[in-house]
Design a protein around this nucleic acid. Structure first.
Lengths: 186, 186
DNA sequence: GATTAGATAGACCGATTGATCTACTTGTCA
DNA sequence: TGACAAGTAGATCAATCGGTCTATCTAATC
């Protein structure tokens, strides 16, 4: 028995996830519809419009889960778990087709402050912040929240810088700084 | 005597610099022409097209000079000069109308790898890298190039993260890490 | 004063944008 | 069988995209 083809809604999300990452959020609706092999009407039925589709793509992209998985694979030690994220970043940024962070990209590209995507970007980054804060707390870090902010700056810095200067291997550079964040005793 | 109005070329660059920052590189040519109060033909005469205009905007934006000025105002000590950049970043990211790093934005928004803007983005970031390398060398840092890469990750991280989470004050968080970069003795 | 390069104004081009619409087909459940 | 919801196909819409065109005007140079 062949696996059932996903419904129009899922196909739209998949196509939009792929195309908005490779081409940016300014891809045409036509291109998304064509790749999803879906009727025009289905898009507006399910998501109300392009903006809704983009927001839903960000809401369901679950890059957070990827970091969580990497951490879990690194074992119990909070220190190792955090550093594993930066090892993963080295893989991500050197992989073919790397095009930066989709959340940062969307936040920068969408000029209208009212665009629903901004809410999802904020939610995502807050989520990663919580992820780091948990580890730092378990580590007994003196100021987990502030340290998590530092780690977030490093992550965003890696993903942004690697687009322009991948040969600088920003993930490795950031990993060395992450060690300082983890070992801070003040 | 009133100051002479700049020529069409300068007015185009000014308008494009303003609009591409506020609205992104996908602003329409019409909007740029209107704000510059310049004939359509002048754009294609001077820059060959929109792509050429955008590239020239990046080439002449001279954000590098801003960092240089800030450093010079901070005195002679390389340590103080580098940290002054992060103090400046705190001002930049909290100023009204802050919309992230125009170079990173352009690099992410322009999907075509052949777009002339990418060359200018790379040139700019290499320039900042050289700026930092100089200071680190004068400071006697054991590996100025690698440390400059770390500072660049911090700068890009601040400018990217501040777009989504300005309340985290990433510039301050990054400044604390910059101290570690400067004081590295290994 | 005549020539000429540079700027302006604006029509015009085909292509594409996001979105709405009607008409038809499909599958499901009552 | 009949009703209904969901999906498809595609025409159509006004608006905008980047770019080319002709025609006119202006200012400096010879």
């Amino acid at each position: 028995m062949s696996s059932t083809r996903p419904g129009p809604r899922e196909r739209l999300l998949d196509a939009a996830r792929d195309l908005t990452y490779r081409q940016g959020v300014h891809v045409g609706v036509d291109a998304i519809l064509k790749q999803a092999d879906v009727a025009r009407r289905s898009l507006y039925q399910h998501f109300g419009g392009k903006d809704g589709l983009i927001a839903e793509v960000l809401r369901t992209s679950a890059q957070e889960d990827r970091y969580r998985t990497v951490m879990d694979a690194a074992g119990e030690d909070p220190r190792a778990r955090v550093l594993a994220v930066f090892d993963e970043l080295e893989r991500i940024t050197t992989a073919p087709g790397f095009r930066g962070c989709r959340y940062t990209s969307a936040d920068l590209a969408l000029t209208d402050p009212q665009h629903p995507a901004h809410t999802e970007v904020r939610r995502y980054k807050d989520g990663v912040h919580a992820l780091f804060t948990d580890e730092l707390t378990r580590l007994g870090h003196p100021s987990p929240e502030a340290a998590a902010d530092q780690l977030l700056v490093l992550v965003d810095g890696v993903l942004a810088h690697a687009v322009t200067r991948p040969d600088a291997h920003p993930a490795r550079a950031a990993r060395r700084l992450a060690v300082h964040v983890l070992d801070a005793r003040d």
